[in-house]
């Protein structure tokens, strides 16, 4: 049975529309105008236990709304969500004991107290015996490389340290399904790496399913074999990460270096010119014509060096969002 099922999930929000200025403010106060915004439109997918799935989309694509429907924080306007066989919106304690939500922009730790105090509260709420809780905290702290940070007031921690502590608080009850909304937001490269490694390790140790949103492609490429892309609330792609390149980037990049300055040469006949920089030329060539084109290049020109590569995944996804915009 899949850990998470989204079946035709949709959410329509009613939002207030306010015109700027004093008059707009007065109107907004007395005759508030609303319009409906379709944040998520008929999104379906499922996630198996132990899978790490990247959930991608530009800002406002409906990622957070989908996560909130899957965790049961908001009720879908249409469609159904199922997590570990439960309907999330019922918020049954039995389900809540097995899931967690981490939000990069929000924190559950008590600001004025050390992390350990917040962890005591979570241990009590999840009904963990003292020794068991201590063992788990020690284990998680070890995986994240935390030590005396846990006894320092949270307000005195750096962003990276705080996020690590947030993860300890969010995973103390050993959830089987993790919903992570930008867990590496604003972290430096080292902290991002540490969080990534930790998530992979947790996933391997506990076989947990993870749905992860992030704007850092490095998070996605390091952790996820499968990605789901949504844009304007609709599902655009669900499949292997590599498949994105094949599907949305049918062109490959051919870079070659010539022996002599290619004055007056017409490269258009080989493919789309991406750039020329002295003797180095970059062309975009369709996959189907790749071998033929490379052959012709080597025959017809005096080539010193030649490489073929996929365009970087960030670029492909960026272009995918731009394309969807139109």
């Amino acid at each position: 049975m899949p850990s998470v099922i989204a079946d035709n999930l949709s959410k329509v929000f009613r939002v207030a529309d306010k015109q700027p200025g004093l008059l707009g403010t007065l109107r907004h106060f007395s005759h508030r105008k609303y319009r409906d915004v379709e944040a998520v439109k008929g999104v379906s997918f499922s996630i198996e236990p132990g899978e790490i799935v990247g959930f991608l989309g530009p800002n406002g694509a409906g990622k957070t709304t989908t996560l909130k429907m899957l965790t049961g924080l908001i009720h879908p306007t249409a469609g159904a969500a199922q997590v570990l066989g439960f309907k999330p919106f019922d918020r049954k304690a039995e389900l809540l004991r097995q899931i967690t939500l981490v939000m990069g922009q929000k924190q559950q730790l008590i600001w004025d107290l050390p992390t350990l105090d917040s962890l005591r509260i979570n241990a009590a709420v999840y009904d963990l015996p003292r020794t068991e809780a201590d063992n788990r905290v020690a284990e998680l702290a070890d995986m994240l490389g935390l030590s005396d940070e846990m006894t320092r007031p949270v307000r005195k921690l750096s962003l990276g340290e705080r996020m690590k502590c947030e993860l300890v608080a969010a995973l103390l009850h050993r959830p089987k399904v993790l919903f992570l909304d930008e867990p590496t937001l604003g972290l430096d490269v080292n902290a991002q790496n540490a969080v990534r490694q930790f998530l992979r390790q947790y996933n391997q140790q506990h076989g947990a399913a993870i749905l992860l949103t992030s704007h850092y492609m490095a998070d996605i490429t390091a952790l996820c074999e499968r990605v789901i892309v949504i844009h304007h609330g609709s599902l655009k792609y669900d499949g292997e990460l590599r498949g994105i390149v094949e599907r949305f980037a049918p062109l490959r990049e051919v870079t070659f270096e010539l022996k002599q300055d290619p004055a007056g040469q017409d490269f258009q006949r080989f493919g789309q010119i991406e750039s020329t920089d002295g003797r180095i030329v970059k062309l975009l060539v369709e996959r189907s014509r790749l071998t033929g084109t490379v052959n012709r290049l080597l025959h017809e020109l005096d080539v010193l060096d030649l490489t073929v590569s996929d365009p970087p995944i960030e670029q492909v996804i960026g272009r995918l969002f731009e394309g969807a915009e139109e």
Binding site: K68, T71, R91, A93, T100, L101, K106, Y126
Partner: peptide
């Protein structure tokens, strides 16, 4: 206002109690 109510609602304990 800041949305941290979400964390309380996702705890397996009565939210009104908390």
């Amino acid at each position: 206002r800041d949305g941290t109510l979400d964390f309380v609602l996702l705890k397996p304990i009565d939210a009104q109690f908390w």
